[in-house]
């Protein structure tokens, strides 16, 4: 029985760099967090914030020109980044599994679904008999809400939502302790998206697994996660319990992310976030968000803020704290603010 109060996944000072002609692009920079069994962490960020790099690094699937430049990813006390190839092969899927972005294209198009599922299971449990395997396939399909006959189908015979469920069935086939889901619903319609997320939640509850859900939609993250982490230019800039993150975010970037989703109650001016994330090979000095931040002041340009506790369980990397108790109101944005800098 796993101890529910002892973190199952501990990430410390994780750094992932992409080597480029202009020097290393720090796609993940000194990121630390931990996850309790059964916890749901949502990691949110814009394109290029390092969130997918983060997901692949957690699985140690980083490929050149990317490389893990430091830190540790401890799963139940064992550092995935230091495992032998054999240990790693045994650990993936059994202890930590990935539901990749666009899972629809991660399925093998020339294999029936059941063969792909059996392949994954047999790689870890070579002794299983065919009858047991068939029973397991049926159970897994049932868990994700797919009919038994789907086992005999090829990927092209499945809809997008069904393929995403199939990828989930494979990811959970060995009852992992941690599931990493990288934008699992980004190509799906809202109704299917809701079905898939509910399926993921149900699977996770059944397994008692922890989930890292990666995405760019604050609404979706809010609907699913217990804890929300916000990534910006490779860094974790704020993390805390979902309610606090939505209702009283402390980092100006988190506030802008929440506000960029307009809701369906009152019509209001749509506010995006002015500007673009900085290129990762050429980060601005100080806080990476300072060129876009409506509250930036001189210190933000000089000094990189570190993550500090700003409320119980909530930490933000922002120089407004500890001087301020809460985030000051953001000045209204004008159209000039919204001009993009290519």
């Amino acid at each position: 029985m796993t101890d529910k109060t002892k973190p199952i996944l501990v990430v410390e000072e994780l750094n992932v760099h992409y080597d480029t002609g202009k020097g290393p692009a720090k796609a993940v920079s000194d990121v630390s967090f931990s996850l309790l069994p059964g916890e749901r962490l949502g990691l949110i960020g814009e394109s290029g914030s390092g969130k997918t790099t983060m997901a692949t690094a957690l699985m140690r699937l980083t490929r050149a020109p990317g490389r893990i430049a430091g830190g540790s990813v401890k799963l139940d006390g064992r550092d995935i980044l230091k495992m032998s190839t054999r240990e790693l092969r045994e650990t993936r899927l059994r202890d930590i599994a990935l539901i990749p972005q666009g899972a629809m294209s991660s399925l093998n198009p020339v294999m029936r679904l059941e063969e792909q599922m059996i392949d994954a299971i047999v790689a870890h449990k070579p002794g299983m008999r065919r009858a047991e395997l068939d029973a397991r396939v049926q159970e897994l399909l049932k868990n994700v809400g797919l009919a038994p006959e789907v086992a005999r189908r090829y990927p092209h015979e499945l809809s997008g939502g069904m393929k995403q469920r199939a990828a989930m069935a494979i990811a959970t086939s060995l009852s992992p302790k941690v599931i990493v889901a990288d934008e699992p619903t980004s190509a799906l319609d809202v109704v299917v998206q809701r079905q898939v997320m509910q399926t993921l939640g149900r699977l996770q509850d059944g397994l008692g697994a922890a989930v890292v859900l990666i995405g760019h939609d604050m609404g979706l993250i809010a609907q699913f996660a217990d804890t929300v982490g916000v990534m910006y230019a490779g860094k974790l800039v704020e993390i805390g319990p979902v309610r606090q993150m939505i209702e009283s975010p402390k980092h100006p970037y988190t506030r802008l992310l929440v506000d960029s989703l307009p809701g369906i109650e009152v019509k209001r001016e749509l506010t995006g976030i002015p500007g673009l994330p900085p290129p990762l090979v050429d980060l601005p000095p100080g806080c990476s968000f300072n060129p876009r931040c409506p509250l930036a002041f001189d210190r933000c340009v000089r000094e990189t803020p570190l993550l500090q506790e700003v409320a119980p369980g909530q930490s933000a990397a922002c120089h407004l704290y500890p001087e301020h108790a809460a985030l000051p109101p953001l000045p209204p944005m004008t159209r000039a603010h919204q001009e993009l800098r290519p």
């Binding site: 809202v190 998206q193 604050m218 609404g219 809010a222 369906i264």
Partner: peptide, 11 residues
Amino acid sequence: SIPLPDLSKAW
């Protein structure tokens, strides 16, 4: 089914 960033409107 709209995922709203509003916890009072949970799915």
